[in-house]
Design a protein around this nucleic acid. Structure first.
Ligand SMILES: [Zn+2]
Ligand SMILES: [Zn+2]
Length: 602
DNA sequence: GTTTTCGGACGCTCAATTTC
DNA sequence: AAATTGAGCGTCCGAAAACT
């Protein structure tokens, strides 16, 4: 496979993947996770924000930070509201449970920086008025404030959201109806992390000099040992970053380069994160939003379909443990093509300590999915450097993870790329936000006529989880999508290079049986198949996560320009569907707020 | 000139690990 | 059990490409 899902779906894994298709959700997981999550959430909220929050697990309720919900900011000047920079509880001395953290904030606080013409101004505001770059040029580097949960629209567009619901951006672009908190996937558990650097025990030497002397390092989940740099290239714990300040032990850590580490598992009995070959790899099979709420929306601004590019997931991916996943130095490299030593592949790393010993991580390929997928399918990616250049090296070296920036970029599903994402396989790549047919389940459907279906309750598909159990898919697929274009442009449209021809063909065929990606057009042959038929087939045959990704299929179709209509498979297939006004289309698709924890993932 | 796409820097959260 | 680490997962900036 290619694209995101690739690694996991390595043919070799298909058999395992089958497990994921089981229609009998082991049940415990979802409930368990949900419970856990609630606990954690509440715990965390209590501790970090000094208040517990009721309601959705995912959403920090709007206005939690005092954001004026009625604010209708302009995308560029949306910072009139109280920026979390200041209002965020963790930035508040009173609220912040961690003095260290507060200190860190202060260190980065723009106002703390001297000689700034921006001094005294709201950093966020400044940042948006002048741009972060501009501020940096002025010697200011405001800490970028993130909302805890971007709404689905902003998320998809990779644009700044705010705490309000509807958020300012949605208001601006008329996406109010679909402005909902996006669901967050739950972090996987059981991931071994290897030894942490020793803390500086008062008056004593580190217990394990070897670890502390050489600087922070850790074992990637795939068993690679690596400096504890962020997989995305950020050196966690480097001075200048918040985390570093919070680490009392930092001072004891030598940042000096340490000798390259052998690409081997530490022999301390530590094992790669998921011993089970199939174990965590289910993680990726997550629910995705099913369908566009607007099948044929006219393109309108605001909906910057910025999504697909973030297809790979450096993290979640379970592939790490999948046999053949290639993540591990332990003989998982395909074709015995042993990865070269990390260092040899490292594009010069910055001073940041980072990556030295790590290896190739390019687990999911290199960057952008686009390339990766590409030709080598899962494997290739491993050895290939990120598409882009360079500098970002660290990322691609990251042991346990895929290249920088890839990680999160999974949610997207836009016309051209979303596509790439997945195949069921992988975990990671399957964004919770991207639609996926759950085993034995049907994807949520829009009214056949494209009209609002009151009382229509789409079936709840389930998806395999990391632990092999299933979670319910959120039936909603809130993304308001604009009309898919005949994929003719876009960098992303790098054509069939994404997939191998054979693969494309396979996928093409598969597509009809799957939940269509958000805005994809079906080729005539598939269009002719009635929806009921599709549903039926779905029930009868379990999704082939292994190689048939709706997304991929989409991509292939896209590449071939074989679109014959504006309709999307799972959406409205009626003749007029395509021209429905935005509003009504949204009505159709406007999903009910996802029940806490239902997304599965979360 | 505008909109969309995309790479990737950066931030937050929280499970793993260490320390007490 | 508390403290801390540090990476999983997320947000979204800003530039380039595509479009109008
Ligand atoms: Zn938003
Ligand atoms: Zn919104």
């Amino acid at each position: 496979m290619t694209y995101g899902m690739a690694p996991p779906m390595h043919p070799h894994h298909l058999s395992h993947a089958a497990d994921a298709t089981s229609s009998l959700p082991p049940q415990s997981y979802a409930a368990h996770q949900q419970q856990q999550q609630q606990q954690q959430q509440s715990q965390q909220q209590m501790s970090q924000y000094g208040a517990s929050q009721m309601g959705s697990n995912f959403a920090y309720s709007q206005g939690f930070y005092g954001h004026p919900s009625q604010h209708h900011p302009n995308e560029v000047q949306s910072q009139q509201h109280a920026s979390a920079y200041y209002s965020h509880p963790t930035s508040s001395p009173q609220m912040d449970p961690s003095a260290q953290m507060y200190a860190a904030h202060q260190m980065n606080h723009p106002d703390m920086m001297a000689g700034s013409q921006f001094q005294g101004h709201h950093p966020d505001l400044l940042a948006h008025q002048h741009g972060y770059a501009a501020l940096q040029g002025a010697g200011i580097r405001p800490k970028r404030k993130q909302v805890k949960n971007a709404c689905i629209n902003c998320q998809k567009a990779c644009k700044k959201c705010d705490e309000g619901r509807p958020c300012g951006r949605c208001v601006k672009y008329g996406l109010v109806d679909t402005c909902q908190d996006s669901a967050r996937k739950e972090r996987r558990r059981g991931i071994k992390r290897g030894p942490y650097k020793r803390r500086a025990t008062t008056g004593s030497q580190p217990t394990n000099p070897a670890l502390s002397v050489s600087g922070p390092m850790s074992y990637g989940r795939d068993g690679h040992i690596s400096p504890s740099s962020r997989s995305d290239g950020m050196l966690a714990g480097t001075p200048g970053t918040e985390s570093s300040f919070s680490s009392p032990a930092f001072g004891t850590q030598a940042l000096a380069p340490r000798p390259p580490m052998p690409l081997q598992m530490p022999s301390n009995g530590w094992q790669p994160s998921n011993p089970s070959p199939i174990g965590d790899d289910r993680d990726g099979l997550r629910a995705r939003y099913g369908q566009s709420t607007a099948s044929n929306q006219q393109s309108y601004y605001g909906y910057e379909q910025d999504a697909a590019h973030h297809v790979y997931d450096r993290s979640s991916s379970a592939p790490a443990t999948q046999p053949g996943s290639m993540l591990s130095p332990m003989g998982r490299f395909p074709n015995s093509s042993t990865p070269q030593s990390s260092t040899s592949q490292l594009p010069s790393l910055g001073s940041q300590a980072s990556a030295n010993g790590s290896y190739l991580g390019g687990v999911y390929g290199s960057g952008a999915g686009r390339m990766g997928a590409m030709s080598n399918g899962s494997t290739g990616s491993l050895l290939s450097p990120p598409l882009h250049s360079s500098a970002s090296s660290t990322s691609f070296l990251s042991a346990s993870s895929a290249p920088n920036g890839l990680a999160h970029h999974r949610l997207h599903s836009d016309s051209s790329l979303a596509t790439l994402s997945s195949n069921g396989a992988s975990s990671s790549t399957m964004s919770p936000r991207t639609p996926l047919n759950g085993p034995g389940s049907e994807p949520p459907l829009l009214s056949p006529s494209g009209n609002k279906m009151s009382g229509f309750a789409p079936p709840q598909p389930t998806v395999p989880t990391a632990s092999g159990t299933f979670l319910q898919q959120d039936t909603s697929r809130p993304f308001p999508l604009k009309m898919p274009k005949p994929a003719t442009r876009g960098r992303s449209g790098t054509g069939s290079s994404y997939l191998d021809q054979p693969l494309q063909q396979q996928q093409q065929g598969y597509y009809a049986n799957n939940l269509a990606p958000i805005n994809v057009k079906l080729p005539m042959q598939h269009q002719q198949q009635s929806q009921p038929q599709q549903q039926q087939q779905q029930q009868q045959q379990p999704p082939q996560f292994g190689r048939s990704s709706p997304y991929m299929a989409v991509q292939s179709l896209d590449d071939r320009r074989q679109f014959l209509s504006n309709t999307t498979p799972r959406m409205d297939l009626s003749p007029n569907a395509g021209m429905m006004p935005i509003k009504s289309e949204r009505d159709v698709g406007a999903p009910p707020p996802a029940p806490a924890g239902s997304l599965g993932l979360a």
